[in-house]
Design a protein around this nucleic acid. Structure first.
Length: 288
DNA sequence: CGAATTTGACCGGCGC
DNA sequence: GCGCCGGTCAAATTCG
């Protein structure tokens, strides 16, 4: 597929720490941080400090986003495992159940940080925890979840930032092959989970959408097809075209809001229309 | 009773 | 070659 090379997580294994992913995205000044109450939070204080250990020079082996306009294309999709250096551990363990010589295709990853006291945030999908590991340099364990849909291979990792325990780092891997099972839309809205929902929706969006998103995120913003009507000089509002002809607005805080306002501009507010609900045609909302 | 979680073991890649 | 580490498996346990 063309353009897949835009995926910045080519050699995701290089990102020892999830925060490094953001750094790579140029979000070091303020990751996509949302609060469980639905408010987009200003960039975490010491910008970049979230990257627990100073993000090492991300010298991606040979699949850096951009090393190839279309060559590294596969880097993100699945077979990049061969393109870049073999995954440190995300695949081999799985290879246990695979025939020798066959590596599990690596899935694209999408990570975001959420300020919340809850580790495992509701995102509309059902997950089953299959492991928990202590993380080096972090007092908090990392939990591994897998989508309960047997046909869905999406996984997600949840861990707390060692620098800011109030921040939960969620990393999705793969795409859902189905749609959200159930989600208390009203409750979610009431609880202000819109942003989280949006992020989760992103994780569920077609990969092409991811690419779109990331290509938009790539700094410096080229001719960003932004819908932002406000001086999004420091924050970026992205419109993510989805397959169902709806648009999901995602806020990527890249340095805070315009100094003039302490809250997100109206146009940056979450779409309060039931993100997944609107994204997913009702007819398609059958599990599996 | 079935589903989900917990937890220790195991595997393989990587760095030294 | 060895030890560390991340990721996964699977049996045991807990929960609804």
């Amino acid at each position: 597929m063309a353009g897949a090379g835009d995926w910045p997580f080519a050699a995701d294994e290089a990102y020892a720490d999830s925060s490094a992913i953001f750094a790579e995205l140029g979000w070091a000044n303020g990751l996509a941080v949302v609060d469980a109450v639905g408010e987009l939070l200003p960039p975490l204080d010491p910008p970049g400090e979230l990257a627990t250990p100073p993000p090492p020079p991300l010298d991606l082996p040979e699949t850096p986003a951009g090393s190839s306009a279309d060559g590294a294309a596969s880097s993100c999709s699945t077979d990049d495992a061969d393109g870049g250096k073999p995954a440190a551990a995300s695949t081999e363990a799985a290879s246990k159940s695979l025939t020798p010589g066959k590596k599990r295709a690596r899935q694209p990853r999408f990570a975001f940080m959420t300020k919340s006291e809850i580790d495992h945030l509701e995102d509309g999908y059902r997950w089953r925890k299959y492991g928990q590991k202590a993380v080096k340099n972090s007092p908090f364990p990392r939990s591994y979840y897998r989508c309960t849909n047997s046909k869905c291979t999406v996984k997600k990792r949840v861990e707390r930032s060692s620098d800011d325990p109030s921040v939960v780092i969620t990393t999705y891997e793969g795409q859902h092959s189905h749609h959200t099972v159930t989600f208390p839309r009203a409750a979610a809205t009431a609880a202000g989970f819109s942003h989280i929902h949006a992020m989760a929706a992103l994780a569920a969006a077609p990969f092409s959408a991811h690419q779109q998103l990331y290509s938009n995120l790539q700094p410096p913003p080229p001719t960003m097809p932004l819908a932002a009507t406000t001086p999004a000089s420091s924050s970026s509002l992205l419109q993510l075209p989805l397959h169902c002809n709806h648009e999901l607005q995602v806020v990527a805080s890249c340095g805070g809001y315009p100094s003039s306002s302490s809250s997100p501009p109206a146009s940056v507010l979450p779409v309060d229309k039931g993100l997944l609900d609107d994204m997913v045609p009702r007819a398609m909302r059958h599990d599996g």
